[in-house]
Amino acid sequence: MQIIKLHSISKKILVALLGMFLCVFLLFHAAANMCILRHDGGAWYNAFCDFMGTNYLVKFMEIILLGTFLFHIILTVWVTIENKMARPQGYHQPQRSKTHTGSKLQVWTGILILVCLFCHFMDFYFVKLGLVDGNLNFYEQAHQKFQITHIAISYLVFFVVVWFHIRHGFAAMFQTLGLYNYKYGRALEVLGKIYSWVVCLMFTSVVVGVYFGF
């Protein structure tokens, strides 16, 4: 039964567009976090957080972002269920074709991102909303959290998971949007590698930097 009629490719195109928005957000988020590494007592970072907390356009974008996550997840889970149904009886032998492992992990890395994201929200976003107790000075909050070893390590795990997800997702996004061709295909793969490394290293540098007190 189909409640909403969305063709296979249309679903994938929406997933890719939402994924693209998430990729843009991720780069922006990583860049802003670099301010935490400044030894300015949080002047820049808190000013930034203040702006993010009060500006109405940002508040609007926040809703868009949460909606993006939601739809990205709904669509991918939908696609995954349909794909399981497309092969009711599986093979006896394990698959030995040369494939992109990243794609097979995509659902699991996605779900892991969701779990990590919830923990991350407990540290910051829910504090802002007043749902959990914590330091509203996010510069200090980041310093307090990232200096605790197990929290720092779990953030690093989070970044590895994100790396896996966008390592495959980035080039896949262009393939889905019909932009992967003989001419630019290789370039897109390389760009995907660069993007996933740069973003994840930016996030990592903040956690590692704060942990070791650079």
Partner: peptide, 22 residues
């Protein structure tokens, strides 16, 4: 052709590229 493909119960592409390999 895509409408027919969906109707017949084939799955959605998730860019695994096992097809290309085989």
């Amino acid at each position: 052709m895509v409408e027919k493909m969906d109707e017949l119960g084939f799955g959605n592409c998730t860019n695994t590229y096992a097809c290309e390999a085989e």
